[in-house]
Write a protein that binds this DNA or RNA. Sequence first.
DNA 1: TCAAAAGTGTTCCGAATACACCCATGA
DNA 2: TCATGGGTGTATTCGGAACACTTTTGA
Lengths: 230, 230
Amino acid sequence: MYTYEYPRPALSVDCVIFGLDENELKVLLIERGHDPYAGCWAFPGGFVDMDETTEAAAKRELWEETGLQNMFMEQLYTFSDVHRDPRGRVVSVAYYALVKLSDVKDQVSASSDAQKAEWFPVNSLPALAFDHAKIFDTAFTRLKGKVRYQPLGFELLPEKFTLSQLQKLYELILNKELDKRNFRKKILSMALLIELPERQKGVSHRAAKLYQFDKVKYKELEAKGFSFEL
Amino acid sequence: MYTYEYPRPALSVDCVIFGLDENELKVLLIERGHDPYAGCWAFPGGFVDMDETTEAAAKRELWEETGLQNMFMEQLYTFSDVHRDPRGRVVSVAYYALVKLSDVKDQVSASSDAQKAEWFPVNSLPALAFDHAKIFDTAFTRLKGKVRYQPLGFELLPEKFTLSQLQKLYELILNKELDKRNFRKKILSMALLIELPERQKGVSHRAAKLYQFDKVKYKELEAKGFSFEL
DNA sequence: TCAAAAGTGTTCCGAATACACCCATGA
DNA sequence: TCATGGGTGTATTCGGAACACTTTTGA
């Protein structure tokens, strides 16, 4: 057996979780109960066990701290500044995740009894612990970049959504207005949306058709070289 | 002072270094001198010291093992499979780098006395140690994806190059033929190439004009929202 | 004079953009 | 009946794709 006898940095994970709340993009933060940075807000995270991958650790921590699971999650970047944690050398592998906030909004506050968890609009975050402001910037930049050529948007919407909801989502993330007719033409021309035999309910105006993203078809097309692009 | 008293995975870095050799894209491999995987080829890499970032570690290892420095380098992905290293738990932060192979070809073999370093065409790699085949796939996929919307190609060419060299490079990486006139039109229309008052020498056909990439101008345009795209 | 690569414009087609009005619904 | 958002088509413009011949050079 071979072993390494050098001192090792500690290894942690952190998760930036995005959720769409009505007309605002939000992220989930945890209020730290003790030092360092007691009272500060931080992304959920923790240390990696010896028998789990970093991705498994990220999912476990998320489950433990927020009760969330089964969302879209992807590795973001590994942060290794020597002094990023005052307690000593900690290298952190960051992930970002997208959740259908409409489905889980109550769930989060209910299950995070020990710690205070809260959704904050991406444009008005409180002071963040460690280098989490940097992690957030990296995550948000990645999301903005990737949403244009990968169908990430659907991970943030409910299963059934209207075209206006979809458009608003893109306008929020890309931070620019889109033409309604052109947007619809383009998104429908990809033939990746299933039109449901249902409509919106309880709105005081004409009810919009509901659509669903056809994940199966997307996977097929993707394998054939098709690339989603907005 | 706070400390963590849990067992920690070891933390290493690995570098996939791409170089363009005539009409082939190659990567640099090191032959392993001892177990595990003695005699196998692997990407240069090593363990992260307590007082350096992973990026610094990657650059240091590269310098120690190959004598290379000052090349373009970017974090690729962090690999954390529990059994990726038979010696125990090792998490590795992988980087990829691009070098102007024409400038450094001899340098590498000269400085890597202790270990055998060799450039292999990306399409005929030997068996690789650990999960390095997976790391390579990730790196090559990233390169192919990123070269289209970031001016990475120039990192692989000599300072002064011809448009044909540039085109061949893109054809190699994207693995498809490009139309000469359209390619030139497009690349010149970006106005990011400086036409030098020089030409190719020693060729038995009409000598091509030499160009240089205008990095300064690119940075300016990029800051204004311009995006390179081939 | 031959071989080999450099260099150069135009036409065509499809996609992106810009743009304005009627429809359905609940209050 | 009014306010609110849902839903639809066309004309124009711009960029991408296809395509072939002349020029220069050294061997």
